[in-house]
C-alpha cells in the first residue's frame, strides 16, 4: 500500500513538473521550431539581451514588485497589528473585507480597476499597476504577518513594560525582533505576488508600458518564439527561489514564536 502510494505521488509530481521541464529544455534547444531531439544552445538567452521590449518589461516588473513589497508590507503590518492586538467594534467585518481581493476572480477585479481608473482619470500605466498590485498584496501581508503575531504572546510586551519599557520601547525591543521573520516573509510574498501577477497587469498596462507576464502573453499570442522559454526559465528560477526563501522564513518564524 505504502509503495503504491509513493509511486502514485511521484507520478503526480512528474505530471506537475513535466511541462516546466519541457519549457526549460526548449529554452536550451537550438531549434526555433521546437524540433526534437534537443540540440543544446544558449542562443535564446543571448538573444534576450537585445530584446528591448522584453528587457524594459522585466525592469518594470522588478520595479513594481519592489515598490509593491515596500508599500504593502508596512501597510499590511500596521493593519495586522490593529486587527490582532486592539479590541474594537467591526474587527471581524474588517477581517472579512480582506477576502474579496483574494477570493474574487482577478478577471473581475482587473476589469473593475480598468473601468474605475479610466473613469476617474487615474488612467493606466505603471502607477495604475502599482495601485492594483499593492491592493492585491495587502490582504496576503495582513494574513501572513497576523499569523506571525498570533504566535507572539501579548504578555511579552506587558512584561517589558512592567520592567520599565514605554509601550514604544517594548514594541521595538521585544515585539519587533520576534515578529521580523514573518514580516520579511510577507515582504517576499508581496514581491512574488506582484512579480507573478498577470491578469490585473494585463488590464492596466498600456502598449508601451507593460510587465514581463503581459509581454510574454503578447508574444505567445503573436506566435512562438523560443526567447519566451529563456525568459520564462529565468523568471521561474527567480520566483521559485523567492518562495523557497519564504517557506524557510515562515517556518523559522513559527518555530521561534511557538517556544
Amino acid at each position: 500500500m505504502i509503495a503504491l502510494g509513493r509511486t502514485y505521488l511521484l507520478a503526480i509530481i512528474a505530471f506537475l513538473y513535466l511541462p516546466i521541464a519541457v519549457m526549460i529544455a526548449m529554452a536550451f534547444n537550438d531549434s526555433a521550431l521546437y524540433t526534437l531531439p534537443i540540440q543544446p544552445s544558449l542562443r535564446w538567452f543571448a538573444a534576450l539581451a537585445s530584446d528591448a521590449p522584453l528587457l524594459s518589461a522585466t525592469r518594470n516588473s522588478l520595479l513594481i514588485a519592489a515598490a509593491t513589497s515596500a508599500i504593502a508590507t508596512p501597510l499590511g503590518a500596521m493593519a495586522a497589528l490593529a486587527l490582532e492586538r486592539k479590541q474594537f467594534r467591526g474587527r471581524s467585518l474588517l477581517r472579512l473585507l480582506l477576502l474579496p481581493p483574494i477570493a474574487i476572480p482577478w478577471l473581475i477585479i482587473g476589469t473593475a480597476m480598468l473601468v474605475f481608473f479610466f473613469w476617474t482619470g487615474i488612467g493606466r500605466g505603471l502607477h495604475a499597476l502599482l495601485i492594483g498590485h499593492v491592493a492585491l498584496a495587502i490582504p496576503y501581508v495582513v494574513l501572513i504577518v497576523g499569523a506571525g503575531l498570533q504566535t507572539l504572546r501579548a504578555d511579552l510586551e506587558e512584561a517589558a513594560m512592567s520592567l520599565g519599557s514605554t509601550p514604544i520601547h517594548a514594541f521595538f525591543s521585544i515585539t519587533l525582533p520576534l515578529w521580523l521573520p514573518s514580516v520579511v516573509a510577507a515582504a517576499l510574498f508581496a514581491f512574488a505576488v506582484s512579480l507573478d501577477q498577470f491578469v490585473i497587469s494585463y488590464f492596466l498596462s498600456t502598449p508601451g508600458v507593460s510587465t514581463l507576464p503581459v509581454e510574454i502573453y503578447a508574444s505567445i499570442r503573436k506566435g512562438f518564439t523560443p526567447e519566451i522559454n529563456a525568459i520564462s526559465t529565468i523568471f521561474l528560477a527567480v520566483s521559485s527561489a523567492l518562495i523557497l526563501i519564504f517557506a524557510q522564513l515562515s517556518q523559522l518564524g513559527g518555530k521561534r514564536g511557538s517556544r
Binding site: 507573478d196 498577470f198 507576464p213 520566483s239
Partner: peptide, 8 residues
Amino acid sequence: PFWTNGLV
C-alpha cells in the same frame, strides 16, 4: 509549481 507564474 503553484507559486510559479501560471502564464508560463
